[in-house]
Nucleic acid binder design. Structure first.
Length: 284
DNA sequence: CTCCAGGTGAGTC
DNA sequence: GACTCACATGGA
């Protein structure tokens, strides 16, 4: 067991990070640790005094994946001062934007459109079970490479519950397998050029492109606007709706240089608040 | 049973 | 650019 610590405090909330809807395949264990794969690298982590405890896995890989180098203090100082943003900050303290493997992130978000988080997870696991490579000690196989998926077929993906998303994932995998687009070298592009490049792929619009920018390319100012964030932005504008462009501009101005981080805290708070009012009536 | 979900793309103005 | 619609599936 390795306790990752550094000179400066590195708070992390493993639970908030892994349950905030940026990644979908990690499993909680009875001893309060979490097990999951980073690519095909098996990892098991827990948390002690807001520090990441590595129960299993290579420290360098985990350090990078959990983004322990992100300057959280600086990011928090840049949070907007309104009540909702500060409340989200308090509730999700230690939530980190992961550095996910590119293809895995792109693929799972292609399957995410018009789907609840719970079902995105079940599709991800179904794809792993049908097409992935087993890893010793992991509850689920590794996510299949795009080469592997490109050799697959639509029927297999329909069996994984993808519905109309099956064709998009398959075509995207085939484009990547052709080599016309290289997800790794795309990293050299500016955020706006990278967004445009990602959006040429079938099933990738502006929202999913922004998810991939934020979760796999470290573009911390990218703001995915889904139905939840859309509602939050309207509330921040005192009930005033707007066109996609207007709301995107508003989010960028209002949420600041780490807008993607702020967005993730707002999103996670909104979703966890929604689930609550259930056990309160029973208590007396 | 009805409602909704981390949207996208095609058609149209 | 912005608006409208169809698109599959399963959990609440």
């Amino acid at each position: 067991m390795i306790l990752v610590s550094e000179k400066n405090a590195i708070p992390i909330s493993v639970e908030a990070t892994l349950k905030s809807g940026q990644v979908f395949h990690w499993d909680p264990l009875p001893d309060d640790s979490w097990v999951g794969l980073i690519g095909d690298h098996l990892a098991r982590v827990s948390e002690k005094n807001q520090r990441l405890v590595i129960e299993q896995g290579t420290p360098e890989i985990l350090h990078r994946y959990f983004a322990l180098d992100h300057p959280l203090a600086q990011i928090y100082a840049a949070f907007p001062k309104d009540v909702l943003s500060q409340e989200s900050l308090a509730l999700c303290n230690g939530l980190r934007i992961l550095r996910q493997p590119r293809w895995e992130c792109l693929a799972t978000f292609i399957t995410s459109s018009m789907k609840q988080v719970a079902h995105i997870r079940s599709m991800s696991i179904a794809i792993r079970n049908h097409l992935g490579t087993p890893v010793e000690g992991s509850p689920h196989p590794a996510y299949p490479s795009f080469e592997r998926l490109a050799c697959s077929n639509e029927k297999t993906l329909l069996d994984c519950g993808l519905g109309y998303r099956a064709a998009n994932l398959l075509q995207t995998a085939r484009i990547l397998a052709e080599g016309t687009i290289n997800l790794e070298t795309l990293d050299k592009l500016s955020t706006s050029e990278l967004r445009t490049a990602l959006m040429t792929l079938p099933g990738v619009g502006v929202k999913i492109a922004n998810c991939v920018l934020l979760f796999a390319y470290e573009r911390l100012d990218a703001v995915p606007i889904d139905v939840w964030v859309h509602r939050i932005l309207i509330a921040m504008r005192k009930g005033r709706d707007g066109t996609p462009t207007q709301l995107a501009n508003y989010a960028r101005r209002r949420l600041g240089p780490y807008a993607g981080y702020v967005q993730q805290y707002l999103f996670h708070r909104a979703r966890t608040e929604k689930k609550k009012p259930r056990d309160s009536a029973k208590a007396n």
